[in-house]
Write a protein that binds this DNA or RNA. Structure first.
Length: 421
DNA sequence: CTTCCACAGGAAGGTCTGGCGG
DNA sequence: CCGCCAGACCTTCCTGTGGAAG
């Protein structure tokens, strides 16, 4: 906690903040969307993709490519990077190349995908395709028309291609070269799901997967280099301890070599340090940042939980609080949770589930990392699960309160019976 | 050693929704 | 538009079990 001098606060709030605000030079450089001048430790991948794409510069159709790799392994960054270079070269050589990037998580239906691609070929005399209303095959033939008029080679990047609903969309795209007279299309599919193609129509699979690439995760050392590169741009010099970057890298490497995670850790550490008015990021802030990321994740999961699971979670937290107040160890059993859960259901006038089902939902909460539930035996007193919340129960309660149903229940007192142990 | 608690967790079947082919 | 089917979600019924107590 900072000690504000009251006078200073009252006089010139923003002036002070501006002056004292200290760690960042360029905040953007720490965001995952930032594109550095040089992509470190991905030169093999860059070369591979570039050599697949090179026919485009001769006016020929490059092979279709599928790129796999876990989150934060640079798939998007590398394809965008290569795309940029490709466009630059095409301008120099006068070849007509279109580079079209589509994020299929946002554009996830056949219609919207075709529409999105078509709108890249808009010019003054062609009409825009509306968001909705046309038959899908009309959008398709319009797209063919526009592409042929434009000519040249189009490279279409389908990021998060596994998010597309139905395989109709991919099927029509994979055959688009058969319908085109002048223009040529090459498709790059990006996915972090290695098993994605297993569920694809075999025809689509063979046509889109002419080339396959796998992006390996970064190791801790590579992550360090990447972080250093960004820190030089993003932060003021000597604004952190030497141990900070290795720590962030090691933590992210433990996950799965996720560069985005490493950057997030570092950025949030810096933000936390800044908010505390400290001029140097230390290991302490990295730990805090890791904690914050984890809690944010949990709260987000809780927010999207179905009502029954929320009720169960509330029952767990209430019982735990009660136990703590009574000075007992924070050990809760399935049976206790179920009793309170039934009571809560009565209060909210919702139907309660059976204990069998509740037990399953409890282990689901465990798998989500919101609680820990481990099977123990209390000998004579049976076998049950020992249930604990994951430390941030106050914040979870606040999230649960966002639901009107739970608002009055969070003060609910467990019925009088104090069992003696 | 046996008993026996308080569940764990498997199996099978019911109900409901939503997509899909005819 | 309708019937069908898969899959999510639950229930019912069941057998299995670690270890303190006796």
């Amino acid at each position: 906690m900072r000690n504000f001098s009251r006078n200073a606060v009252n006089s010139d709030i923003f002036g002070r903040l501006l002056k004292s605000e200290g760690l960042f030079l360029d905040r953007e450089a720490m965001r995952p969307t930032y594109m550095p001048e040089i992509l470190l430790h991905r030169s093999n991948e860059i070369n591979d993709i570039a050599s697949v794409m090179v026919p485009a510069l001769r006016g020929e159709t490059p092979s279709n490519v599928f790129i796999y790799g876990k989150t934060g392994t640079g798939k998007t960054a590398v394809t965008k990077y290569v795309g940029k270079k490709l466009l630059k070269k095409s301008r120099e050589t006068g070849k007509r190349i279109n580079y079209i990037y589509v994020n299929c998580e946002i554009v996830d239906t056949q219609y919207r995908l075709l529409q999105n691609i078509a709108n890249h070929f808009i010019n003054e005399w062609s009409e825009r395709i509306p968001f909705t209303g046309w038959p899908t095959d009309e959008v398709y033939s319009k797209l063919i028309q526009m592409m042929d008029k434009n000519g040249g080679v189009s490279v279409i990047i389908l990021d998060e291609v596994d998010k597309i609903k139905g395989d109709e969309a991919l099927y029509s795209l994979s055959r688009i070269n058969n319908d085109l007279k002048k223009a040529k299309v090459s498709i790059v599919g990006i996915s972090n799901d290695l098993k994605f193609t297993e569920f694809l129509d075999p025809r689509v699979k063979s046509s889109l997967g002419e080339e396959n690439m796998i992006f390996p995760p970064y190791d801790a050392r590579e992550l360090q280099d990447i972080l250093k590169q960004r820190v030089d741009i993003a932060l003021k010099p000597s604004s952190m301890d030497d141990e900070v970057i290795p720590l962030c890298s090691a933590l992210a490497a433990q996950e799965h070599g996720d560069a985005r995670r490493a950057l997030d850790l570092l950025r949030i550490s810096a933000e936390l340090a800044e908010r505390n008015g400290v001029h140097k990021i230390t290991k302490k802030f990295v730990r805090l940042a890791q904690n914050k990321i984890e809690i944010d994740r949990i709260l987000e999961v809780v927010r999207t939980l179905p009502a029954q699971s929320k009720t169960i979670l509330l029952a767990i937290i209430l019982q735990e609080k009660q136990n703590k107040k009574a000075g007992m160890a924070g050990v809760i059993t399935t049976g206790e949770v179920y009793e309170i859960y039934k009571d809560l259901c009565k209060k909210t006038r919702t139907d309660s589930l059976t204990q069998r089902r509740v037990a399953d939902l409890i282990s689901e909460l465990d798998m989500l990392g919101i609680i820990t539930a481990r099977v123990i035996s209390k000998g004579r007193y049976g076998r049950t699960r020992e249930i604990k919340t994951s430390s941030s129960s106050d914040e979870i309660i606040n999230v649960l309160k966002e639901d009107d149903v739970f608002k009055e229940l969070t003060n609910y007192k467990i019925r009088g019976q104090t069992r003696l142990v």
